[in-house]
Simulated scan of single mutants.
Amino acid sequence: MSSGELSSAATRHPWDWYVEESWVTQRLIETLHGPLCGSYDDWFAGDLIWDPCCGMGNVLAPFMELGITVAGSDVQRRTSSPQFLFEHDFLADQSCLLDHWGPKSIVFNPPYSNQNGHKVRGLAEKFIRKAIALHANTVAALLPVKWLASEGRHTLFNEHVPRFVMILCERPSMPPGDVVAALGDNAFKHGKVDFMWVVWHRHVDLEPGETRTIWIEPRPKVRKVRK
């Protein structure tokens, strides 16, 4: 993905740190456990949920509320939340972690193009391939919808066929993490980019073309009461 697809290279956060709202993960969990996802209704059971680029921890918060064990890591500490365990480069060696962790799923909002201010081609794909290679039971990646349309990623989707593509019909706001505090109540308003969850499950074998697309309906509108 080119850096210009979401914002200009000059204005992107140097680590592609963009903050999703927790409702985005809540909708993922609800949809996976709902009737649209077929007979397999035991998603995440017994798994540790790992977000390797956890930022403020918003992806992990809904799992914690359900009593599911979570682990957050990132290349830099960006939160004081207890789910953040350590600073760690996900694309580096993982053997020190895997020796101590049991069954796991990886749920994350991966960076797309920037690492320490430098453009890295195919960065999100590198993260996804690494997550799949670590034998996570479920891999769920939050990505812009336009990420599906790519000659280069055709190979990824044929080698590792997603179980689901879940399109968020409500656009989430995704502000850079370093401006959230300054924006205050306006930080999570007026989303401009369409996002989706792409979900892989290693115990379900699919052929290319068998991926199911699901449209996640918007949250109910809150009616304002006139005073």
Rank of each mutant, 00 (worst) to 15 (best):
G34D: 12
D185R: 12
E159H: 04
S105H: 11
E125V: 04
Q115Y: 07
W101Y: 10
A10W: 10
M1A: 11
D185L: 11
E125G: 06
A10P: 02
R202H: 11
H118L: 12
C54Q: 00
V198Y: 00
I29V: 11
W43Y: 05
A9H: 02
W215S: 14
K227I: 08
G34H: 04
E21A: 08
H160L: 00
F127A: 01
R129G: 03
W17F: 11
E125P: 00
R12P: 04
S173C: 09
R226F: 08
S3Q: 10
P82R: 15
P35F: 07
A61G: 01
A45T: 12
I106Y: 01
Q83W: 15
G102N: 09
V193N: 07
M56K: 13
V24M: 05
P144K: 14
V222F: 14
A182N: 10
A45F: 10
P208T: 06
E151H: 15
D194Y: 05
D47W: 03
P62W: 03
M1G: 10
I106T: 02
H135P: 00
L6A: 10
D74F: 01
N116W: 10
L85Q: 06
R12W: 05
V145I: 11
S3V: 12
F188P: 12
A149P: 01
K130C: 02
P175I: 03
L66V: 02
R129D: 06
P144M: 13
I214L: 14
R226K: 11
E125L: 07
V165C: 07
E151C: 10
M174T: 02
C54K: 00
R129A: 04
E210D: 13
I106P: 01
E151V: 10
S39H: 14
F108C: 02
N114I: 07
P162W: 01
N109H: 05
T31V: 05
T138Y: 02
P172N: 09
H160D: 03
D89Y: 06
F127K: 02
D205A: 15
V120H: 11
I29N: 01
S95Y: 10
V165W: 02
L60W: 05
F84L: 13
R223M: 15
V180R: 12
H135A: 08
L28N: 00
N116T: 09
Q26S: 11
D41C: 07
C53I: 02
R226D: 13
G102C: 06
D89Q: 09
R219H: 06
H88D: 13
M166H: 03
M64D: 06
A149T: 15
F127S: 01
R163A: 04
H203M: 13
L156N: 07
S8Y: 09
H154T: 09
P175G: 08
G46Q: 12
H88G: 11
T211H: 08
V139I: 10
V180W: 12
P111K: 03
L142K: 00
E20S: 14
T213G: 01
A140K: 03
A141M: 04
A92C: 07
P52Y: 00
D178N: 15
S105K: 12
P110I: 02
S7K: 13
E210M: 12
W50I: 08
N137K: 15
V70K: 04
L168T: 01
R171E: 05
S95F: 08
K189R: 15
L134T: 02
V193M: 09
